[in-house]
Computed example of a mutant assay.
Amino acid sequence: MNRYGRWRECLLAACLVITLPSYAGERLDDSASPRSRVEAPQAIEIPDTTQVVLKFGQVDYKLATANFVGKQARIDYVIPASIPGLVSPNGLLVEWRGNAPFESGTGRPGDRVLVWTGIVSEAWMSTRLDLTMQVDLAALRLPSGVPFGFESYFEIEVLP
């Protein structure tokens, strides 16, 4: 390849980087929530597979939204990209059923999933998510006696 071909490739790569959407979300304070870290309470093995279903039940969240009252915003549920003991993001599927005002959804480690959009009207936003996870045991390497768990969180982005 001649040097003009390489310049063209570099220019194309730079254009791709420039045009990628940026995410300007801010992590919401959920310290008033009863529990934000979830650990597997019970496992239901699916016969003849390497999958396990973990039912966490209903998890209550209380999010501090006082700084955003009166603003148009979106809130995403964020599943951390790095989860202790998980060797592949494809080894975990998180599913949740939302209760008003948040939407239901699914995601994998590293995903941000839209759960709410609108005008923030109160200093606190509360919701309850019914969490279930499917784990591929081949993608899990936990030390003995260490429970599987992680801390998901919410991010808010103010919209124009």
Rank of each mutant, 00 (worst) to 15 (best):
M1P: 07
M1I: 14
N2L: 01
N2G: 13
N2V: 08
Y4D: 12
W7Y: 10
W7S: 05
R8P: 00
R8D: 10
L11A: 05
L12K: 10
A14K: 15
L16S: 07
I18Y: 06
T19G: 00
T19M: 02
L20T: 05
S22I: 03
Y23L: 06
Y23G: 06
A24S: 03
G25F: 04
G25L: 09
R27Q: 06
R27A: 15
D29K: 01
D29N: 12
S31F: 04
R35M: 10
V38N: 13
V38T: 13
E39K: 11
A40Y: 02
A40L: 10
Q42P: 00
E45H: 15
I46T: 06
D48Y: 06
T49P: 03
L54T: 06
K55W: 07
Q58C: 13
V59R: 09
D60K: 14
Y61H: 15
Y61M: 08
L63H: 02
N67L: 12
V69E: 06
V69I: 15
A73N: 03
D76W: 11
V78W: 05
A81V: 11
I83S: 12
P84S: 09
G85C: 04
N90C: 02
N90W: 00
L93F: 03
R97L: 12
N99R: 13
E103S: 03
T106V: 09
G107Q: 02
R108P: 08
P109K: 14
G110M: 10
D111I: 14
L114K: 14
W116E: 08
T117S: 14
V120C: 08
S121C: 12
M125T: 09
T127L: 07
R128F: 06
R128K: 09
T132C: 04
T132R: 08
Q134P: 01
V135I: 15
L137Q: 15
L137S: 12
A138C: 10
L142I: 04
L142F: 11
L142C: 08
S144G: 07
G145Q: 00
V146Q: 12
P147F: 06
F150S: 04
F154T: 01
E155M: 02
I156V: 15
I156E: 06
E157N: 01
P160F: 09
